[in-house]
Design a protein around this nucleic acid. Structure first.
Length: 492
RNA sequence: CGAGAUGUAGCGCAGUUGGUAGCGCACUACGUUCGGGACGUAGGGGUCGCGUGUUCAAGUCACGUCAUCUCGACCA
């Protein structure tokens, strides 16, 4: 069979979609803009969830759950917020169906119209703040640190699997604090949780920075972001953490009495990452053989493929594999023995590569005689023959090495596409080549908008942890003075 | 919602000037194979996106409609 994936140079989106489908991660659903996440894809998401959850707990955050439906009146209290989301909301207007009087299936019962429409949450700030109002009376009640794992719906005009679906899974943290400083510190803390997760678990380099006012979350005073770069040079916002000030507290009248007996509005943050991280993972590492999973997130870290001619050989190899499996599992390594006897080894090799399994162990009659196995790694596609003796320790080290190698490759790929640019003429051509351009910006929304209109490029962030260029210069577009460079890119 | 493209078997596609539907892969059975996506033989599977019209006759022509993809607008 010919190679199934198209070259990423021909059509990057098609190549990405092929990997999503053929690696068995997800498929299109019958509902416009939604997708079905298949078991293998969902296993990766679960792994992300459990690692993030552990980090949240370390920050004192607890999980909770709030309703899917938001009464329209709640939703409209924060003006900026509603403006940001109004164009993409699904609205529930009725609560009952009935048989079509004309006998053609079912219709909405016109008598079952809701007095007040319900919005399917595009995000939960409004309903959560309406609840927090009851929870918060005294400074002793603060801080409140809640997170919820849920689905949200945003009726986007254009969708793309994992990167932008009409319904998506995410976590949203919502915190309430007594002081502005404490809230801001929380927002910063959480964005760094995301950055560490991206780097250590996803093996994906990210830049932490502030969004420009234009790109901020609707209703936020400051939005912190982690920005990643995909293999085609486009930027992807992979997670955000917002300092909401007192906007929601004031809209929902959430006050506490401080230790001097004075009433104060609370200070808020919210922060989230979504199944978009799955899209980022796919686009950051995949190659023409399919998905490449960092070992930390791989549902199956090691797959074992037996090679045999006879039933005796088969059972002898499978017996050996059982021993190896016990050894690996004792070391906390997840593995799978591919004992399907209707498929040839070559087919299995290709299939597990497509699914991105980091390490493959093959064993045949030759190895059986020599006491060896063939160990292949997904990241480099290289193979070596090793003694079965001490294989567990070797694989454990190998997985760490692969994790590191995947990160370094992604880091080099990204860094090779980050460059400074000081001329508007140059900018217009350079930005189309992809990658991050570090440029001076005068800090005005007008300039930002004009650059966007002319080139589609946006300010991805004002970096705080890497590519920080606090040097004086002149805005690339307006020529006005600037204190620092910011990152421009074309984004997803 | 604007501009373009595409809808034919599970997937990828061909189908000429209109004449009752084809290829590769996948699938089923049997046999030979098995160290990088095996091969042979024999099978099964399609109201050609949907609707209306033109015609003796429509996958093919016309109009409408729906869906998908690419590019805008919107966005995590």
């Amino acid at each position: 069979m010919a190679k199934e994936l198209t070259s990423r140079n021909e059509n990057y989106s098609q190549w990405y979609n092929d990997i999503v489908v053929k690696a068995d991660l997800a498929e299109q659903s019958a509902v416009r803009g939604c997708m079905v996440i298949k078991p293998y894809g969902y296993a990766i998401w679960e792994k992300m969830q459990s690692l993030l959850d552990a980090e949240f707990k370390k920050s004192g955050v607890q999980n909770a759950y709030f309703p899917l439906f938001i009464p329209k009146s709640f939703f409209s209290r924060e003006a900026e917020h509603v403006e940001g989301f109004a164009k993409e909301c699904a609205v529930v207007t009725h609560h009952r169906l009935m048989n079509d009087p004309e006998g053609k299936g079912v219709v909405v019962d016109p008598d079952a119209k809701l007095e007040e429409e319900l919005i399917v949450r595009p995000t939960s700030e409004t309903i959560i703040w309406s609840v927090y109002k009851n929870w918060i009376k005294s400074w002793r009640d603060l801080p409140i640190l809640c997170n919820q794992w849920c689905n949200v719906v945003r009726w986007e005009m254009r969708t793309r699997p994992f990167l932008r679906t009409a319904e998506f899974l995410w976590q949203e943290g919502h915190t309430a604090h007594a002081t502005s400083e404490e809230a801001q510190a929380k927002a910063e803390e959480m964005v760094h949780v995301y950055a560490d997760f991206a780097r250590n678990a996803m093996a994906m380099p990210v830049v932490v920075g502030h969004k420009s006012p234009n790109e901020r979350f609707a209703g936020a005073l400051d939005t912190l972001t982690i920005e990643a770069m995909m293999q085609d040079g486009k930027a992807l916002q992979a997670g955000t953490s917002h300092f909401l000030g007192q906007n929601f507290a004031k809209s929902f009248d959430v006050k506490y009495t401080d230790n001097e007996g004075k009433e104060q509005y609370v200070w808020a943050t919210s922060w989230g990452v979504s199944t978009r991280l799955m899209g980022a993972l796919i686009m950051a590492h995949s190659d023409d053989n399919g998905l490449v999973l960092p070992p930390v997130l791989a549902p199956i870290q090691v797959v074992m493929v037996p090679i045999y001619k006879t039933a005796e050989e088969r059972s002898a190899v499978l017996d050996k594999f059982e021993d190896i499996r016990k050894e690996l599992e004792a070391l906390g390594i997840s593995c799978k023995i591919d004992s399907r006897d209707t498929l040839r080894p070559g087919f299995k090799f290709a299939e597990w590569e497509l699914k991105g399994v980091p390490v493959r162990i093959a064993m045949g009659a030759r190895d059986l005689a020599n006491g060896t196995v063939e160990v292949a790694r997904r990241d480099t596609l290289s193979k070596e023959t090793l003694s079965v003796e001490g294989i567990g320790a070797h694989i454990k080290d190998l997985l760490s090495e692969i994790q590191e190698n995947i990160y370094n490759i992604a880091l080099e790929r990204r860094d090779s596409r980050v460059r400074k640019c000081d001329s508007w003429e140059e900018f217009k051509t350079e930005i189309q080549k992809g990658g991050f351009l570090l440029c001076h910006w005068d800090g005005t929304a007008e300039t930002e908008q004009k650059i966007k209109d002319e080139t589609k490029a946006t300010i991805r962030c004002i970096p705080v942890d890497s590519f920080v260029c606090e040097e004086k210069g002149f805005d690339i577009y307006s020529g006005k003075p600037s204190e620092r460079r910011v990152i421009f890119a074309i984004s997803y």
